[in-house]
Design a protein around this nucleic acid. Structure first.
Lengths: 161, 161
DNA sequence: TTGATACTTGTAATAATATAACATATCAAC
DNA sequence: GTTGATATGTTATATTATTACAAGTATCAA
């Protein structure tokens, strides 16, 4: 898994592929990929950033919808439950999944300067965490792994001249 | 570092030692360990659980104080800034540090059944995370590492008979 | 010991995030 | 087409957190 989000890439196809993958997954699993859910996923896919539920509501309202909070939270619940988006706990916000359809439990890399969020492979991290937990007799079921720092671009920008 | 919180231990001394360590640290660093801050730390130390800011306010009010939200958030900011408490992002809540005075950046083990929170050594976890981030050109400054699952006690209880 | 300065607290108001509850509409399977 | 499950519309409210400003307290130098 690469850390898409910090690299240049074809962002249009990034959105298109994300929606297509989600649609395919829904068909395959008998889930309803309704216009609302699709729209919220598209809004998230537009950015490699986490958006708050109310940011999403703002976008929906600009589009003319009368959007109350449950509209956003329900769609987000659906997207997160099915692996199309992730909740970033540190930000109380949501980001589109960069690898829809692939089974994965990533670590998140959050740039404090540009707010970009990327996913990184977390298997070794989870292994280390599982081991530490085991020593305490603790069984890990889920884990939040979120790093904050500087992405490559912002790191350059911040570097002393 | 052990994962105190799941083990039996002398909890009275646990509170006393925590407060004493914090007091010593404040003296040494020229910080004001005011009654409010001490009280909030004591409230957190009473439990090996994360408490919300409003849980703390409830306790303060029961004690007769007129406690508005900033009272709790200011004290918590102070405690977290100085390493006397940690914010548990997953819970939007705060837990007393189990190792006040020791430099550490732990992983948190959150029991979904009894809500206990323990700290576990996270050096290997952070190393793995740093490596994964580096591959993306990302520089980690801080990391949230929180595992949810079952503590040893609750695991027994949940086990099929 | 006084005044300057920084830090801490009191208090009211409000912002930001999230959920509950219930009515209505749509879907999907029979 | 009826029915049971799923999804949406809508109002209200709960929970978490911050802003702003006034007043009090500690610290330190002159």
């Amino acid at each position: 898994m690469d850390a898409k989000g910090f690299d240049d890439h074809d962002h249009a196809s990034c959105i298109k592929d994300g929606v297509a993958s989600a649609a395919a997954y829904c068909t395959e699993h008998g889930l309803q990929f309704t216009p609302q859910r699709r729209r919220v996923l598209e809004i998230l896919l537009r950015e490699h950033r986490a958006l708050g539920a109310y940011d999403i509501l703002d976008v929906l309202r600009e589009e003319g919808q009368t959007a109350q909070p449950p509209i956003a939270y329900r769609a987000l619940d659906f997207l997160v439950s099915n692996g199309f988006a992730h909740k970033i706990e540190r930000l109380n916000a949501f980001a589109a999944c960069a690898h829809i359809g692939e089974r994965h439990a990533p670590a998140f890399l959050i740039c404090r300067a540009c707010r970009a969020v990327a996913e990184a492979a977390a298997a070794p991290v989870r292994a280390a965490l599982g081991k530490a937990a085991q020593e305490a007799g603790f069984t890990v079921e889920r884990a939040v792994i979120e790093a904050e720092g500087l992405c490559p671009t912002c790191r350059q920008t911040e570097a002393p001249a």
